[in-house]
Design a protein around this nucleic acid. Structure first.
Lengths: 145, 145
DNA sequence: CTGTATCCGTACCGATACTG
DNA sequence: CAGTATCGGTACGGATACAG
């Protein structure tokens, strides 16, 4: 991952420049792992996927998102939107009307990402039961405490 | 996501039972988002992917992992291994020899997951430049502070 | 309607020391 | 070799109040 203690993870609260290119030798496998981490560090926030999915079906307004994504706070919605916009995954368009109207749209890059997320979704749906069972079995054998 | 404040995220430090089935009505899109979150909550930890990748190439020993995954601490390696084993993504085999020898192997489910991670890896590699550029552009327009 | 600002809990993770 | 135990920092995210 990051070989120095310069952490390359997302800073959701405060933006930070993040260009930790791999300099040290990686095993091919761990290079892959490192790249996946890059994605997750950008899109792995608690709400990013939800916002992305909602914005992938056409332009969405702020309040629409707030209603569609159950449980999100106004603060986190704003932060998530800013981060996704910053990474070029969302386009923010302001209509200078009163009351103000702001629309968010997923970029082609984000739409492409959405495709791959479907793969993960299907994986989770297929194995949800098995994983749940594995947990129960594990907790019974070892102490649930 | 989780409609109550019962959070379904991973507890990495302390195991916790996590079966928050979706009961409330979801929009189809947000249902997808919710399922992806399930995956990330299991596998989105800082080191999970790295461990998974390393274990997908055959049985690996504890110390091997410690060396391959640059920067991981002994504590985090143990915790990550325990979580993955609990979810049925890793099998732990103990050889009762002296000195002790423990081997971790990815299960078929984990191998399948690995396939899908490749999709994300390729996505990141394709768009790494564009995202980086988008960040720079964004930070120049809005304040980098 | 679309945000900002502030306070604060807690999960995640690192460092370090100890053990069968 | 393969862990466990404990302490502490800090980023993430929730609640709430305020604003253009």
């Amino acid at each position: 991952m990051s070989q120095r203690n310069t952490d390359v993870s997302v800073q959701l609260d405060m933006p930070v420049d993040c260009d930790g290119e791999a300099v040290a030798p990686f095993t091919p496998g761990q290079a892959k792992a490192c790249t996946v981490r890059e994605v997750l560090d950008r899109v792995g926030g608690k709400w990013s996927i939800g916002v992305l999915v909602a914005a992938s079906h056409g332009p969405v307004r702020f309040t629409e998102l707030e209603r569609q994504i159950e449980g999100i706070s106004r603060r986190m919605l704003t932060l998530t939107l800013r981060n996704l916009e910053r990474d070029g995954l969302l386009v923010r368009r302001v209509h200078p009307t009163v009351p103000p109207k702001v629309e968010y749209t997923a970029t082609p890059i984000a739409l492409e990402l959405y495709e791959y997320l479907v793969g993960l979704t299907n994986w989770a749906e297929r194995h949800r039961g098995a994983i749940s069972a594995a947990r129960i079995a594990y907790d019974r054998e070892h102490g649930p405490v």
